[in-house]
Design a protein around this nucleic acid. Sequence first.
RNA 1: GGUCCCAUAGCUCAACCGGAUAGAGCAUCAGUUUUCUAAACUGACGGUUACAAGUUCGAGUCUUGUUGGGAUCACCA
Length: 603
Amino acid sequence: MNFEHSLKEKIAQALLQLYGITINPNELTFQETRKEFDGDFTIVVFPFIKQSKKSPEVTATEMGEFVKSNSNILTGFNVVKGFLNLSINDMLWLEYFNSIAKEGNFNIMIPPKQDSNKTVMVEYSSPNTNKPLHLGHIRNILLGHSVSMILMKVGKTVIKANLINDRGIHICKSMLAWKKFEHGETPQSSKLKGDHLVGKYYVIFDQKYKKEIEELMKTGSTEEEAKKQAPIIVEAQEMLRAWEHSDAEVMALWKMMNTWVYEGFEDTYKRLGVDFDKLYYESDTYLLGKEIIEEGLQNGVFFKKEDGSVWVDLREEGLDEKLLLRSDGTSVYISQDLGTADLRFKDYPTLNQLIYVVGNEQEYHFKVLKIIFKKLQKPWYDGLYHLSYGMVNLPSGKMKSREGTVVDADELMQDMVQTAREMTLMLGKVEDFTEADAEVLFHKLGMGALKYYILKVDAKKTMLFDPAESIDFNGNTGPFIQYTFARICSVIRKAAGFDTLKSFKKIPAPTDRNLMPKEKEIIKHLYQFPMAVDIAATQYSPSIIAQYVYDLAKLFNSFYHDNPIVDADQIQTSIFRLQLSLMTAETVKECMRLLGIEVPEKM
RNA sequence: GGUCCCAUAGCUCAACCGGAUAGAGCAUCAGUUUUCUAAACUGACGGUUACAAGUUCGAGUCUUGUUGGGAUCACCA
């Protein structure tokens, strides 16, 4: 039984005996005592003064007295206005620390929760196959991957899914441009990554299209007419129809170009260090949804208009009527999503949650999607969750692929690694590294900087990226945290040189030492880890973990600066501090793993 | 126009259910290295939390309004 809970029970007891207030101990919440006051936990007594009929100060003092004299948890308390600050016996902190520091006991820090035996699918990335990935995708991918890791950490079974948008008019655009304007160019011949090659033709299409529109407008067409009549777009639409009829030539071209793109994406995913358990292709799923539409028509949830189009009326929900099927019987975007959601719950019968990592511009879409499933009375409708994240903007505003202002994912990663390389060489950190090891390090650092930079920001917020300013490596950054880890590893290597210290892991640390303030702060922060993970999991928010691990690293660096860890004359202290350092390192590593960031043992 | 989201230090970001004097980093300035990695540490500077009212013991956080920014409301995806 942990002391925090015992303490809550004592406080509940105090409230009952002193004031006749009945409260469930679990409903009491502590906040961490602020640094400027003495104490570990703080309880706010304002909510009780109505019933205690005494001033906040008196109420707090009486409660403190009661708890102190009726248990051995506290060594003292103090009262500031309505805040009761409680000081926990160091011994209890040390006992807690020993319990987590035991070898192989790391996972006890996350107790299994009752609702943890759930299967959840996290869909992320979900790229179009007509252009390479950019910074916006990176945010999506890192979020999806990290959230998956966090959910696994709290015991859920996670299926990482990717729905690849491999069909449609935009795909035909790059196909058509390649067909018309290429000169046998392939990834091999051009030395271009497949996705970039295809993206190049998508751009070429757009240029030609624009030119045709201009010419048509010169001959008197309106812009709207021109956009519809431009020969190249007409041809692309023909190609889409041919694709839908499985025209052999078009299919062959489509398969070839998609293969190029997949190879390119695979490479990007690999460098990002992410993967998927299940791939869905829109070319397989785009016709789904018609069954559901039929179902909805049968039970009167949807209705058909005279022209044959199918709609759902969402005016009761404060929305509008929404089209689900065109008058020509073809499906629209949302009908596909209706089908694919249904498919997933069929594919995975144990699935009870489906998280879509999709930008906030699609909030309306997912709102509609969920309401429709509710109307259809699908039992799992409540398990649908749109993990909506904000855009990544540039100082100049939105990234626009047509204006060439997108920050390319591959280029950005390359730049990050290059910056890491320059920085590390300048600091002279890799003189005893082999060239291959150094490259591995540069990659870890560059990617660490990038990933941390993105994940530390609350997902729902729009964030800014300035390409002119390179992502930092000092301060609140990935490399700072990586550095903290490497430092600890270095200390532990040093300890291995002392006979009395080298097996410090196995020596039980004493529980009777007086903790120094900075030692205690670290233990207290370690104590918060399970809660941080829990909050991150319930809020689907990697930024909680990023903030947590940064604070931990900062605490440790300050401690490290002030106190010698390996000291042959102070064996007991050294052993304790080595254990504290190791525990910090493992927690740092675990947090970074949850963020998808690797930590180096030397840097 | 309707609906939704956002607004915190010069810049980029924090702040768990409403809790104490709103915190970090960058930038600027001043310090710290014969000691385990200075990608570090310590300090200074920097704020009417866009504005106005309300709710209450207490509001960056909740409510309403105003201003400014963004998204969305397609027989596009």
